[in-house]
Nucleic acid binder design. Structure first.
Lengths: 220, 220
DNA sequence: ATCTATTTTTAGACTTATCTAAATATTAGT
DNA sequence: ACTAATATTTAGATAAGTCTAAAAATAGAT
């Protein structure tokens, strides 16, 4: 069975919205995410339910079926692999990436995506730190952690960020932090959860708001 | 203005069918190419005409407008650039390439395609010898060479002739060779410099006197 | 427990791209 | 030039995805 782009986008949206609340996803939440009307969502949910891609009961919200989840995860795999390609090989940066990957993720060829995966060296994380599931839909063990959770004393490395505003990016740049930058976590101050790190011999302070948006490696 | 995938495919089909007959393209030819019905084609032609992408008059066939041609050429650019990527970087071969490129060609991002072009080293021809137009829609000058100098094994095309006698012209006609005819150079016989070519499934012998008077494409 | 506000669904309509079947125009053969 | 064959267009229907407006269900406040 095959899905339209629209159906795939609904499945992906349901997947993402399900992550942070193990209740079913509400029609309105989905409508907002999809930038459409609640009535349109209801129509689509009926269609997806008929295809057994979601579990849907009137007024009760929706969850993904096994099949629906597989499809959603596969789209995420494609999206993230394309992001790696765009960022690491085509020199994309910032916002453009996401927009283009949104289109590329719907290209429908197992061969293509497996070869792309190989070309990229079987990456386990995208440049924003998002884990990339393998061709069977299995996510890698996360051996990354947000900087606000790392133990004091560790030597570590920037693996990704979870905030992509220009303001944040330029702030990081000024601090000397970018993807792959190695540094040492010296101290954490409990009263505001800010941290002190050392990179390239310089000591730098990072607020909690900065630290919580930085993924760092947690090697063993 | 923006086009749907379907509209883009129609424009591309009209472009391709226009290449081989400078009359307008017939509804039926288009229907066959698009694997659809003539009535559907008529509907679409009206739509494209309303958008000023084609010149269409009832029963008179269709041609591309300037705008329509730009779009068609841009799709061909994208298609061929993706083919280069798939073949040279992802290790694709043969038929799969075309199918996947058919999907990729509709991805809609100037930035993406310009960066891909750069990544690939601004190729002028795809791996099948198809010329790749630049970002302004300009095709590269086709390099020409006399058939007696072409390397054995090449797929090529008649680009011109240097002898214009009736005798020569009618000889070519009988052999099935005319301007634009595609063929494959199978073998060259050293003792008389004659060549063996294959066109439309037929194997044909050409003497050196014939071969030296035919310009063929040499898409390096 | 009831009434109100919110959420969700239904009903009916629109658009895009398609189809079949019937009508009309063009072309070719004599 | 006329008819037969072919090509093309029209008319009316269908399916996907969307919308607005109205009805129905659920949740919240007292």
């Amino acid at each position: 069975m095959s899905q339209s782009f629209t159906e795939e986008n609904y499945l992906k949206a349901i997947y993402k919205l399900s992550r942070r609340s193990d209740k079913g996803v509400s029609t309105n939440a989905l409508a907002e995410r999809m930038e459409t009307k609640a009535s349109s969502v209801t129509d689509m949910l009926k269609k997806l339910a008929a295809k057994k891609l979601v579990n849907y009961e009137k007024y009760q919200g929706v969850t993904l079926s096994k099949k629906g989840q597989q499809i959603a995860v596969d789209i995420i795999r494609k999206h993230r692999l394309w992001e790696v390609f765009l960022l690491e090989h085509l020199g994309f940066s910032g916002e453009e990436v996401h927009q283009v990957a949104e289109e590329l993720e719907h290209i429908n060829s197992e061969t293509l995506i497996d070869r792309l995966d190989k070309f990229l060296g079987y990456p386990k994380y995208d440049p924003h730190g998002g884990p990339i599931p393998d061709s069977k839909g299995v996510f890698p063990e996360p051996k990354r952690v947000k900087l606000d959770e790392l133990e004091v004393g560790r030597k570590t490395k920037v693996m990704g960020i979870t905030e992509h505003s220009d303001a944040f990016l330029s702030h990081l740049k000024k601090l000397g932090l970018e993807l792959g930058t190695n540094f040492h976590l010296k101290e954490r101050f409990d009263f505001d959860r800010s941290v002190e790190i050392e990179l390239n011999g310089k000591t730098v302070q990072l607020s909690y708001d900065v630290a919580k948006n930085i993924f760092v490696s947690h090697n063993s």
